[in-house]
Structure formats: C-alpha cells, structure tokens
Simulated scan of single mutants.
Amino acid sequence: MSRTGAMSWRRGLVFLLPGLWVLAVVLWELLSPLGTRFIELLAAAPAIACAGTGRRQCVLMGGGCALLALLPFGGHDVPSGTRLGTCCAILVVVAASYLTTGRRLRLAAELEWFKEIATTTQRALLRPVPPRLAQLALAGGHLSATRGSLLGGDLYEALATPHGVRVVIGDVRGHGLPALATVAALLGSFRDAAHDEAELPDVLRRLERSLQRHLAADRTGHPTEGQDGAGAEEFATLLLLEIRPRDEVLVLNCGHPWPHRLTTAVTGGRCALTEAPGEPLPPLGMFPLPARLPPQRLHPLRPGEALVLHTDGAEDARDPGGGFFPLTLALTEAAREDRLVPGLVVQRVQTALLAHTGGPLADDVALLVLYHQPLALPTPHPPLASSSPCP
C-alpha cells in the first residue's frame, strides 16, 4: 500500500471509529444475557469523535448517544432517573470535549502561525545563495541538528563585489536556536564589509569587531544556553574566500576545515583536500587577530573545477557504530559525473550523510559548492551575402 493510500485508510478509520463504538455498545446492551447495563459507555463516543475528527461530529454523535441513553434496551427494567443521569453525563462529556477541542484547534493554529514566522525569519537570515555569480555556479545547503529548525550555528554567504566574489562559511560554537543571534551578527557584518573593504584582511577584522560587540552585549544581558555568564568561552570558526577575475583564490582561515576541490570525469574525476601553506588562524573570538593578516593563496580555480566548502559537522557525523562519515568518498562519487551540478552535489552529500547517521544529527552541517563554469558564448551567425544591384 502506498503512503497516500495508508493515510487515506487511517483518516477513514478515525472517522468511522465513533460510530463503530456506538454500534458495539448498543449490540452489547441488547445481547447481554446477564442484564448488565453497558449504555453508560456511550459517553466515550463524543470524546472519541472530538479527538479524531472535530467538534461538529462530536456534537452530532453526543446528541445521538444522549437520545439512545433515554431509550430502554433489551427489556431491562432501569429507572428513568438512571437513564436521565446517563443522558446528562453524556451531555457533560460533549460540552467538555467541545471546549477542549476548541482550545486544541486554537493552539494548533497559533503553532502553525509561529512556525511560519520562524521559517520566514530563518530563511531571511540564511538566504539561498544565488545560482550564479560571475563565472561561478553555486549551491548551498544546511541541515540543522535542532528538530523543527531550519538553521543552527552554521552560516554561509556568497556575494559579487567590486573586489571579486567573496564567500564566507563558518560555524558558531553550539548549535540550534541559541546560536542564531551570533550567526545573524556575523552575516550582517560580512554583507556590509564584503562590499566596503578593499582588502580581505579588513573584512575579517570587521567580523571580529562585530563578534566582540555582540558577545559583550549578550554577556551583559541574558546568558545563552550553555553559558555560565561573562566567563563563558564563545568563538566561531570561519573561512573567508576571495575569487578574483583571473581565477586567483585568496583565503583566510580561522580554525575552519579546508575546502575540497573537485574535478569532473572529463578532466580526471577526483576529489582532493585543498590546503594553503602555513597554519590557519585560531577561531575568531578566542584570541585577538595578529597585526599582520596576509591572505594565503590557493591554486587557481580553473574551468571545470569546484570548491566544496563545509562545516565540521559533515566530517564528524557518525553512524550508530561510531564510524565517521566518509565525506571525501561521497564527494568523489559526485566528481565522477561528466558535468558537475552544484545543487546535485549538495543533495547527494546530504542524502548520504543522513543515511550514514540513521537518525538525528549531533551537529549542524553546512555545504557550499562553487563550480567554475564559464558562460557559453553564443555561436556567431555567418554573415549574410550582400546583394548587389543588377547591372
């Protein structure tokens, strides 16, 4: 049976259940050889109707059950006062169930409204990356470790600026809703600094100042989950990239995982970890940035190559037996295609990761794919033959 068919079958059963209950009680009352009264069990029918279908069926079912309670069944000599008491009990159950169901429906409507507000807010915070910037095709994806939340402590953004395409991916300490405020502070600062600052180190310094201001304001207010006041250690790992028009790639790494470089099957189909020479900087917020911040250079991003940026949740995800997720292997499978599609790479890695864990994630996971795909130039049409006037 398909999933849709199973859901339809369940809805039909829930709708028929109150009527089946009434029928069973009436037959039991009529056929009981001991003269025992079971008609009081009719009081459960309106409650079942309210729980399964709604208030309208509850009222109709309750009214029918109240009338049945007043009728003599099976020739039993039951005082009229007993029958009237049973009828009143059924009506009380109807009223209580009606009010309870109304409150439940109001709470459900409010919950849906708040979920819609939360979803809209989270999507505005971590907005989808554009499908294309200059010579790059892009796709991003995020998996939250918090149930019912779209976001958590991971962040990413890609912007076309006068200085080239600038990209940030980061991981704020912690995950889930308590980390959203820090994510918002960093993303807001990056979206301004990426356009305003001519040098990549100055963008990073703007992010550091923004994080410090946010943490200072937070510590003087309410400690977030997992903090113990002003002494709590807060930080964020960050990877800043700048891809220049001549395929140059500059990077500043603050304790973040290095990206992977993919090449398609046409050019050899492989996945390799891309690392710059030298040690990365400490995570942002743990120590002040040094006075000199020379950007490191990665190998140029050639046409047909892709950089896959990710947070450590992708590498640290474990299966029930404790085995780590083979991220490099999952990316290698994607690199065997003749043509890389960033959205499909993200989708396949996420699917493989969820299948590997087989349950809820322990940490948020963010992926961002940057694929160098030059625009195909239109084929020029052959010049039209000029016609000359007849002599």
Rank of each mutant, 00 (worst) to 15 (best):
R213N: 01
A230N: 04
A276W: 04
L239S: 15
M286A: 14
G221L: 08
L262H: 03
Q296D: 07
A216C: 04
E233A: 12
V308W: 06
A272L: 15
C271G: 05
P257G: 10
Q212V: 06
G285M: 01
L250R: 14
A272K: 14
V308T: 09
P245D: 11
A194D: 02
R270E: 12
G285Y: 01
V266I: 15
H310A: 04
H222P: 15
L207R: 02
G278M: 05
G268Y: 11
P295E: 02
H195P: 07
P303Y: 05
A276Q: 13
C254S: 05
T264S: 13
V251G: 08
L239A: 10
G255H: 11
R209L: 13
N253V: 04
T267D: 15
G231W: 00
L211R: 05
A193V: 10
E197T: 11
P282M: 04
P201H: 10
T263M: 07
A236M: 06
R219H: 13
P290D: 07
T237Q: 03
H260Q: 09
L200S: 12
D247H: 11
L298K: 03
R292T: 14
L204G: 07
L211S: 02
F287G: 05
P280I: 08
L215Q: 06
R206G: 10
D202Q: 15
L293N: 01
R261F: 06
D196S: 09
G269Q: 09
L215H: 01
L215W: 00
L241K: 05
P277Y: 07
E225H: 12
P300M: 08
Q227Y: 08
T224C: 11
R213C: 00
L239N: 09
C271N: 14
Q296I: 00
L239T: 11
L301R: 05
V308F: 07
E275P: 09
V266F: 11
R244C: 03
R302N: 10
G221M: 09
V249W: 02
L239V: 12
Q227D: 13
D228T: 15
F235H: 10
R270C: 12
A193C: 08
A198M: 11
G278H: 08
E279A: 14
L250Q: 14
A236Y: 07
H260N: 06
D247K: 08
R302G: 09
E225W: 14
G255K: 08
H260T: 13
G229V: 01
P294N: 03
I243H: 10
A265Y: 12
